[in-house]
Simulated assay, not measured.
Amino acid sequence: MRLNDPLITSFIFDNVEYQIDLSFDTVLDVFDVHDDTGLMEYEKAEICLALLLGEDVESTSELWNHVFSEFIQVDNKQSIEYDRKGNPMPVQKENKKTIDFDKDAEYIYASFRQAYNINLYREQGKMHWDEFGALLNGLPSDTIMQRIIQIRLWEPSKDETGEYKQSMRDLQKIYALEEIEEE
C-alpha cells in the first residue's frame, strides 16, 4: 500500500483490463470459499473470481493465481514490538497465526468501533481491503483485538509469577485459534 497510489479497482492481465471488487467483505467471502474443503481447487477459483470480477469473466487458473497473489494473499508479517525502554523485543515464533477473521469477527468489529468509531457493517461494499488491512494492523494496544493478539503471542518469562503465568495460559486456552497441547 502506497499513499500516493489510488486504491486498486482494476488491473490488466494478458492485455485485458478487469474491474475488481476489493471491498473487505468481498475479500472475506473469498477467504471463506478458499477455506471450503468441500470444493475442488478449480471450483474455488471460479467462485472467487466471480465474487471479485463478476459473473461474466472466463475463469482460468493463471488469472486466479495472479489475483490471489497480487491482491488477496495476506502476508503474516509481525510488527516490531518494543519494551518499555524502547528496545526491540525478540521476534516471536514466525508464522504463528494471530487472527482468524471468522473466530475474531466480533473482536475486530468492537476494536474498529472503539479505535476509529467505524461500523464495519455500514462499510460493507465500500471500505477497500487495503484500507481495512491498514486499520486492522494499526489498531491501538488498548483494543480487545490487540489484547487478544498479545495473549496469543505471550510466552512465559522467568520474571513473571506463577499465578500470572497460569492466568495467561488460561487466557491463551480461551482465545486459542488451534488446540493447545498440555505441557
Rank of each mutant, 00 (worst) to 15 (best):
P88A: 01
T60H: 08
Y82L: 08
Q78F: 11
E46I: 06
E58D: 15
Y82C: 01
D83M: 08
Y42G: 10
V57N: 06
E62D: 15
V74P: 00
M40N: 09
D32F: 06
N76F: 14
E62T: 13
E43N: 04
E70G: 03
G86M: 00
V67L: 03
F71E: 00
H34T: 05
V74G: 03
Y42C: 08
D29A: 09
V67C: 00
E43Y: 06
F31K: 10
N76S: 15
V30R: 02
E46V: 07
G86P: 11
E41A: 08
V30H: 00
D32P: 03
L28Y: 02
E43I: 00
G54V: 02
T37H: 15
M89G: 01
H66F: 11
G38T: 10
F31T: 07
V74C: 02
L53S: 04
G86S: 05
L39A: 06
D35S: 12
V33I: 01
C48I: 11
V57E: 14
Q78H: 13
Y42R: 13
A50Y: 07
E62I: 08
H34I: 09
K77I: 12
L39Q: 06
D56A: 07
E81K: 13
K44A: 10
E43M: 05
D83Y: 03
W64D: 01
I47P: 02
A50S: 15
E55N: 15
A45F: 04
D29W: 04
D35T: 14
K44D: 06
Q78Y: 10
D83V: 06
H34F: 14
P90N: 06
I47C: 00
M40A: 12
M89N: 04
K77F: 11
V33P: 02
F68T: 02
V74Q: 08
L53T: 04
E43S: 05
V67T: 09
